[in-house]
């Protein structure tokens, strides 16, 4: 079937086999290999991307189901000059990754709440990423990174509001 996806802001027209998973189309057709496929049945969270602004599992969504929608992947987080998104920077500073395979999924899962501009405590951060599996870190670094990034984004939102006044 012929589909149109807006991927990280660019409109892409694709001819895909109906059975193709969104994760595979992103990786293989569009070369966006940041999105990882771990368990292939929606349990590990490493394939998490945004469709129309909501975090979903791209391994249990067909590409045709996303026809006409906006898809955002981990490749969209860093600035074109390579400057990391505050959430990515916080993952680095808190040692929230080791092998890195699960990291794109954690980033895309945590991103909506972090960008919402309210600081999260450790309990909220843990709940937020509870659907993602990491086999390296033991999660403390990840929870710390989400807390740190949410505080930074909340601070930026507050000072932005201050500047507007």
């Amino acid at each position: 079937m012929k589909i149109t996806l807006t991927v990280n802001g660019s409109r892409r027209e694709l001819e895909v086999d109906d059975r193709r998973l969104l994760a595979d189309v992103l990786r293989e057709e569009l070369g966006l290999t940041g999105t990882k496929v771990g368990c292939s049945h929606g349990v590990c969270g490493s394939c998490t991307v945004h469709v129309d602004g909501r975090a979903v599992r791209s391994c249990i969504m067909l590409a045709v189901q996303a026809d006409g929608r906006a898809v955002r992947t981990v490749e969209d987080l860093a600035a074109p000059d390579g400057t990391l998104h505050p959430l990515q920077q916080a993952f680095s500073e808190e040692h929230a990754l080791q092998c890195g395979f699960c990291t794109p999924g954690f980033l895309m899962t945590a991103l909506p709440a972090v960008e919402a501009g309210a600081p999260l405590d450790a309990g909220q951060a843990r709940e937020l990423v509870s659907g993602n599996i990491c086999r390296c870190t033991g999660y403390d670094g990840i929870v710390g990174a989400v807390v740190r990034a949410s505080a930074i984004c909340a601070g930026a939102a507050a000072s932005g509001a201050e500047a507007e006044r």
Binding site: D18, H41, G42, C59, I60, L62, Q65
Partner: peptide
């Protein structure tokens, strides 16, 4: 096919293999 959150895992695991999907969303 609704959101596919039960059906797609079953299809990936080949526990379900429908020839046609009717997306009602």
């Amino acid at each position: 096919l609704g959101g596919g959150q039960s059906l797609l895992p079953l299809m990936n695991l080949r526990l379900a293999a429908p020839a046609r999907l009717v997306d009602v969303t």
